[in-house]
Amino acid sequence: MDTILILTQALNGLQLGVMLFLMAAGLTLVFGIMNLINLAHGALYMAGAYLAAAAYGWTGSFLAAVALAVAGTAALGAAIELAALRGLYRRDHLDQVLATFGLILFLNEAARLVWGPAALFVPVPAALAHTVAILPGVPYPAYRLAIIAVGVAVAGGLYLLIARTRLGMLIRAGASNRTMVAALGVDVGLLYTAVFALGAGLAALAGAMAAPILSVEPGMGEPILILTLVVIVVGGIGSIRGAFAGALLIGCVDTIGRAFLPSMLRAVLAPSASAAVGPALASMLIYLTMAVVLALRPRGLFAARTG
């Protein structure tokens, strides 16, 4: 039935959307606050997935694996920020792109050295390895529903952190006017390291949760990095709310477009033409969405005000 398919695909889109949000939240904070383009953000996602796979091997507990992956990647992120990125904030964006692209190569190669070139697989945790009837007679994997729930919960927590806590106020102020924040006596360097570690932890959470549904392999962070960059541009760079809206929009557009666009084209085009055009157009759909959003709102859906 069509409505069932639409519902299932909408949930798939939502699940991709919350994953993208976990990625985009960190990337947009780092871009908005430190003015740093961090192409290695996808590599941190990969690091989270690998650490989760390894920790699952040691502990046998998926929860422990996710916790270790998040903590370990946050620590790795802090170390990378201190060692490699700190000198890049004042450099122009091209230097940052080159340096963080170098980090991608380094981290991908490091993963290959440590874990080998073959993909690792992590089983879906037993407690969630079943399906849930979202409507009578419509099963949906419980694990994917859990991903959606975790993503929404983290989004809520992040909102409270940014909007309600002392750290959140410093983060918002640091995004808007770093000179002022330093003049008030805040150790901006420490604030930047904390923000970068937070972003790395969120990327690792996405990577660890993706480990049971994707294969864990070198280079797995790059496809999602591209989507994430689209998300933060659509949402408005520096804005957490924008990252959330953009992630859900891009997640749904991408999933639903791939699922339905080819069959919709078949209604208006000859079968051979629609078979050729459909998949190509579906994969272009997120970029078309980005173009439309930027044409209507050049600074994204929720442009963070600065200055």
Binding site: R166, G185, V186
Partner: peptide
């Protein structure tokens, strides 16, 4: 907040 010389744990407190 800046004048509190807050360390990171104190920063998680509600503002």
């Amino acid at each position: 907040i800046a004048a509190e010389r807050g360390r990171i744990p104190g920063l998680g407190r509600p503002a």
